[in-house]
Write a protein that binds this DNA or RNA. Structure first.
Lengths: 152, 152
DNA sequence: TGTGAAACGATTAAATG
DNA sequence: CATTTAATCGTTTCACA
């Protein structure tokens, strides 16, 4: 899809505040509210903007424990298989196939260590998992929403 | 802070759609729009809800390359120091201090391999970094916004 | 904390340049 | 593709239970 400079600025404004009004965004990008709406609708239907979400402090809702788990998988395991499997576990907040020793890296979030351990056992019980290596998160230093930096 | 069951449901609805109207949320939780607004305002000022953001497809805006970098730091490096340093790099979308061999895990997102390499060099140039180990992301299988699972 | 009323502002479709 | 108009709908404050 074609994204021009104005789209970029609209995206950046929505990443910064997903509840900003079209009129507000319009004044910042020198466009009328309907024009902004049409662009946002187009960006949404094109899949550039996937949705809008609230950023919640995990500790406030009782999920205080995090870990990254490297997964070592059986010879002929496909990324799709890994993806389908990890999506079944609600504790998985991120998962990636990676280069290097491990085959996949899974980001877990749980209520506490006991919950994390339980989730880990469930994950390791997936048939294609041959072994795993876990790293507990001690503190969160940065966690950006959206695409990251300038959205460009 | 005190979070009751209604707050939980409001949070879940906002994680699902940050642009939902207070009236809409109100009908789903059996509350008037002003009541919902007051709760959301309270959750925001208490830091439970940190903000609202758009979820953008990174590929659509040209950031297609990702990596996780384990950072090994000099003896007396504090998490605050690491946090302050990594926040200066716009490619950093996540950073955590961790247990295990490495001291920190940094999640990077860049336009391409060249950009990633450049960001990596900048990161490794931080005075407290003694060594690093990078893992390139081959594919993204899962990436949940918000707090993760049920927000409860 | 909750509600309803009321003023204000935002959204959205239609018509038009 | 943008704009203006105009009806509709959402937001937000206020008085009150």
């Amino acid at each position: 899809m074609q994204i021009d400079a104005v789209d970029q600025r609209i995206i950046a404004l929505l990443v910064a505040d997903a509840r900003a009004s079209y009129a507000d965004i319009g004044t910042r990008v020198s466009l009328s509210a309907p024009a902004v709406k049409r662009r946002v609708d187009r960006l949404r239907s094109a899949g550039v903007i996937r949705g809008f979400t609230a950023i919640v402090d995990p500790a406030s809702v009782g999920w205080t424990t995090e870990a990254f788990v490297e997964l070592f998988c059986a010879g002929r395991t496909t990324p799709a298989q890994i993806g389908a499997a990890v999506r079944r576990h609600p504790e998985v907040v991120g998962a990636y196939t990676v280069s290097g020793e491990a085959d996949a890296l899974v980001h877990l979030r749980a209520a506490d260590i006991a919950h994390l351990e339980e989730a880990l056992e469930r994950l390791r019980a997936e048939t294609f998992v041959t072994s795993s290596r876990s790293t507990i998160v001690l503190s969160r230093l940065v966690e950006s929403p959206g695409v990251g930096p300038s959205t460009g």
